[in-house]
Design a protein around this nucleic acid. Structure first.
Lengths: 151, 151
DNA sequence: GCAGATTGTTAGCCTTGTCTAACATTTCGC
DNA sequence: GCGAAATGTTAGACAAGGCTAACAATCTGC
């Protein structure tokens, strides 16, 4: 049953390590919970940088969701201390929000540069980076960075 | 405001392409919706392969969730035509489920081999592959595959 | 400075994915 | 083959993240 030579690649899926696998999935789920907040904070930072302010309508357009969805998510971000907002006013990042945005942008750029350096076209690279950036460990990020910077 | 040399990497985030960015996020969200189903189906296939059958208790252990969560998710997979199940019986993949499992396993293996070939340790590679595999386009997958197979 | 357009918010609904508590069924040891 | 252990299901709660419809506030162009 285990003579398949590819099986060696699935160390985490056989009986020896169900708990390790459980940890991996739990890690993925934890990352998923933060993804949306990271995407918003990163986008808000970009909007502030390029437009001078971050307004819900621009967030809605760029995230591809409706305005009420944005409003609800912004409430959550405010509750979690990442942004501050006042009714009918534009959005500001807290210190914590700025730190998270910086970190996200850093990760995003490394992943993007890595994909481009592999020879991927810009549009696909951008799309994939958006999905991948939240699931890359520090260790992997370091390897990506080194690869993108190789001579 | 745009003199930052890194800005060129952010083509999708400036005014020229808010819609492209929206599409990217919508794609990421679509991928997210399928992630869990893919993880389950992939795991069920593995369990059938290694144990002869897939039982909820093993799924719960390996996914790191409780039994009722598994039950509810399995109901959804059955509703979506990926598995068949009967009360108190083990789970079977439908034709569609098997096809999805095969595709997922294929992607998972390529991503994993790619990360390993970059020099990542096995455990981190497994964890990151779990998160990354759902967000890799065909095009990127092809590049990963080619890289992992380079001389 | 007012009317209409734009933008923002609120209310309320749906689905997913998680949990605990309680109960039902099956399996196993002897 | 019976009783206890293991496994599976049901019920119900809750948060997140999406939507539409309806309403409120702001901004803009004359």
């Amino acid at each position: 049953m285990h003579d398949d030579p590819h099986e060696v690649l699935h160390a985490a899926s056989d009986d020896r390590s169900p708990d390790l696998r459980a940890e991996a999935f739990q890690g993925v789920r934890a990352a998923r919970r933060n993804e949306l907040a990271e995407d918003y904070v990163e986008l808000i930072a970009e909007l502030i940088h390029s437009h001078g302010e971050a307004r819900p309508v621009d967030i809605a357009t760029r995230m591809g969701v409706t305005a009420p969805t944005v409003a609800k998510t912004l409430d959550r971000l405010a509750r979690d201390g990442l942004i501050t907002r006042a009714k009918y006013r534009s959005i500001f990042l807290t210190e914590q929000g700025r730190a998270l945005a910086k970190e996200c942008r850093h990760r995003h750029e490394i992943v993007l540069r890595f994909l481009l350096s592999l020879g991927l076209d810009a549009e696909t690279a951008e799309r994939d980076a958006e999905g991948i950036e939240h699931h890359v460990s520090e260790r992997t990020l370091a390897l990506f960075s080194a690869f993108a910077n190789r001579s």
